[in-house]
Every structure is written in structure tokens, then in C-alpha cells.
Design a protein around this nucleic acid. Sequence first.
DNA 1: TAGATTGTTAATCGATTAACAATC
DNA 2: TAGATTGTTAATCGATTAACAATC
Lengths: 217, 217
Amino acid sequence: MNENIKVPMPTLERLSTYLRYLQDVQARGVHTILSADVERDTGVNAAQFRKDLSFFGEFGKPGVGYNVLELQQRIARILQVHREQPVVLVGAGNLGTALIGYPGLRRHGFVIAGVFDNSPKKIGQRLGEMEIQDIQYLKEGIVKLGAKIGILTVPASEAQTIANTMVEADVKGILNFAPATLRLPADITVRDVYFFQELAVLSYCVSRAELLAERSE
Amino acid sequence: MNENIKVPMPTLERLSTYLRYLQDVQARGVHTILSADVERDTGVNAAQFRKDLSFFGEFGKPGVGYNVLELQQRIARILQVHREQPVVLVGAGNLGTALIGYPGLRRHGFVIAGVFDNSPKKIGQRLGEMEIQDIQYLKEGIVKLGAKIGILTVPASEAQTIANTMVEADVKGILNFAPATLRLPADITVRDVYFFQELAVLSYCVSRAELLAERSE
DNA sequence: TAGATTGTTAATCGATTAACAATC
DNA sequence: TAGATTGTTAATCGATTAACAATC
């Protein structure tokens, strides 16, 4: 392991898969797992799993395997999901509302601590336990909450401006649901979730599968 | 170009980015673009863009560039999003409801043609223009609609069973929002959308950025 | 034609996986 | 100790990008 090594993004993405898997096996009362188990149950190659972990230290015992609870706790700590973390959400439309109502986020340590919108109709209304705030106060609001992560569920046309405000308020990571390419400083991490892209990929693969099926008839 | 060549997944994923970009520039009244424009505006390397397209044929004129409208139409056709396509949704919870209310999907050709749930409370209720149907009739429903794409917004514990039913009904692609690893035949395409993973990656990157910031203080 | 940009080949880069020495 | 599995190195595989001949 090396403190300063750059961790590949695919490795980072797999960490949460491992975490989920560890929670599953723990719920089943299993205390020790092997990298071979991970491969069998998640589809991730066993060497891949060991290599991924090696970026962060040593986690297993040769000849024995991995302690489920310990591995779980250490991965949670690496991802900083071992404690609650305030997150700000901008855009109280359908999707934003769904995310607030999604219990999975809080269960994983992400607390939506503030909700903002620009619609006079929505401002002041309650949404779950929160009151929708005027986007005009976004910057102060984020600073006060100390949120370093923002969720963007606004129309594409507003995404860049709001993202800029978030960055001014010292947000360092943005989960972007708006179908827009955000231009932000290099030290800001952006994750795009783009439903149309997912469906378009499916659409391509499905049509290709049908083509191949026809051909073999 | 070669009819039988396997298109890399990253290429496929970028196609919808290109499509979005082309719609943007078309709305601005631009008729021709260069691969260099794509790089400037989307961040995708110009050679990457040209290489991606080369899997599907020739699209531009050397010395001139690409016709926006033509390129748009041809990519839409490759992705099979040039015409409406029925999609079935299972799980009428918060997220499912949000997706049904999301106008972006229909605008891109994906019509949610059937909604299913297992909750007696929900079955029979209206949701948008549709009535929530009993999941018991899922298989027949999918066959009747002719849906080849399914959206799964159910709890993880039910995901595998429902996915199996979808496949029995000849669904070929599944957009899976359930935090579960689906085990399906190799010819079925699955795209996982996993919010916690996205947030966990952000969480890691944010904490790392803060670490580096502290060190340089 | 001269200038410009494509499509494609070749070089580079990075991620995955196989193999094995270290170690429990 | 013998057997088993890890952590890590080396080999493979695939994707990105630079370079350039083809072509408008």
C-alpha cells in the first residue's frame, strides 16, 4: 500500500459493491469470507477483489480469508460512510422528492440536511421533515450546514449556475441528475446519473440481441 | 466499419452524450460541427469521438466536419431511440413514481406502457395516465405490451424474482435500481443504477480532497 | 489547387487477471 | 508441518489518444 497512490475509479466503484455484499453475508451470520466467495457471489474476479483492497492496506489472513465485520468497517471508513454526513439537495421536483423519501440514503449515512428550489410555489412547503428553502439562500445554507456533497435535480438549463454556487459554498462533490455537462474546477468531483443514457444503452443492446436472434433462425 | 464488431461499452455510453450535445447545438441553430467542437464542449477527446463513430460507419466529410441533423438522426437510429418504445416498470414506490413523472423519458422515445406492484393498497390506483396492475399478471402484461425493456424499482429482496419473470416474458434489457446483483442469462443486458455507490464515490473523493487541502496548509 | 478535417492505424496508457511467493 | 489463501508481481487485455494518409 502507498498513501499517495491514485486509486482507479473502477476500484472505487467496486468498494460499495463489496460493502453491500459484506452486509448481505453478515446478515446471513457468516463471519469469514474468501476472495473466491466474492467472485462466486458478485461476479467480481477474485484477484480483482484482492487487488482493489491492496490499494488501501492488508485486510485478510493468508490461508484463512477475511473477517466480515472488520472488512466491512474498514471499507465503510475508507468511503467515509461510517458516520452521518450532511448533503444538500437542489431541485424539489419529482426526482428530488423521490430521493428525499428514499430511506436507503440515510441508512448509508447520507443525511439530506437541506432542500432548495426556485419555485415560489414550493418555497416554504414542507417535504418530509424539511422545509423547502429559497434557492437565493443556497450559498449561506450550504455553508451553515457544512455540506460538502450536493445533489442536483434541476433542469439542465439551471444546472451549471447552481453547481457554481455550490462550489462557492465549498461543496467538493456533486451528484448530477441534470442532463448537462458541468464545467467545474478540477478538484471538484462530479458523478453524472443520466437515465436516458442507461436506457439508450439498453435499447441498443436489445435491438442488437434481436438482430442476432433473427439471424440464427 | 464492420457489421459484426463488438462495440466497447464506453463507446456506447458516449453515444447518448453525443446525441445530447447535437440536440444542444441544433437548438442553437448550428448546422455543422467538427470533432474539435465536441472536445471543447463535452470534454470527450476529438480522436475518441471519431473513433467511436467509426464503429458504425462514416459520418463526416474530411475538411468540412459533420452535419448536425444527419449525425443526430443516425445516432438516434443506432440507439433505436428514433421511435417510441414500450417499457414496463415494476415497483410503484417513490422512485418508480418519479420516473413515471419524468418527462425526459417519453421525450426520448421511452414510453412507460405498464406499471406493476404487489401492494394491494397500490393495485388499481391511478398513476399518471396509468393504472397500477397486480404483479401477478406481470408476465402476461409484458407479453401483451411487447416490452423488451423493464425498469426495476423494487426492494432488493424481490429484484431477482421479478427479473426472472421479466426474462420469461422476453424482456432483453433491465434497468435495475434495486441494490442487488441480478443473476440472469448472458444474453440479457442489465444496467445497474445505484445511488449509494455514486454518493460513496463522492464521499471518498471529498474526504481525500480535504486531506490534501489540509496537508498543503 | 491548397487548406482543413476526417477515418484509421499505431503507440500509449491503464485496468484486469493469471501466477506465485509470502504467510497464516 | 502441510494445506490453503492472501498480497503482489508480471502478463494480458482493452481502451484512449496521437499521428497521418485519405479525402473533401
